[in-house]
Amino acid sequence: MSEEHAHIVPYKTFVIVWIGLLILTGITIAVAQYDLGAMNIWVALGIATLKSGLVIAIFMHMKYESILFKLSLLSALSILAIFIGFTFLDVLYR
């Protein structure tokens, strides 16, 4: 029915990614117990970005998709970054 059969990801890969996500969640909770000032929010965002990267690449199969999918994801995230960046240019330097 479909000619281009996408890659079948083995169960093991998913379980390893899930364990990784649990470990990263544990690290986020542990780090939040220490007062690092403004660094807390950046560490939390960094780990959340790493976790979402794992979910998008493996769970959502982005790693196995064509360049079209990857570029469109990149442009959507760029638009979001511009959205955030320009809002803060306004808010911080008003």
Binding site: T25, T28, I29, A32, D35, N40, I41, A44, L45, I47, A48, K51, S52, V55, I56, F59
Partner: peptide, 15 residues
């Protein structure tokens, strides 16, 4: 799941 990955640290773990 992705949205929650950001909601959790920002709302529940903020110090």
């Amino acid at each position: 799941d992705l949205i929650w990955i950001f909601v959790f640290p920002l709302y529940y773990l903020i110090l």
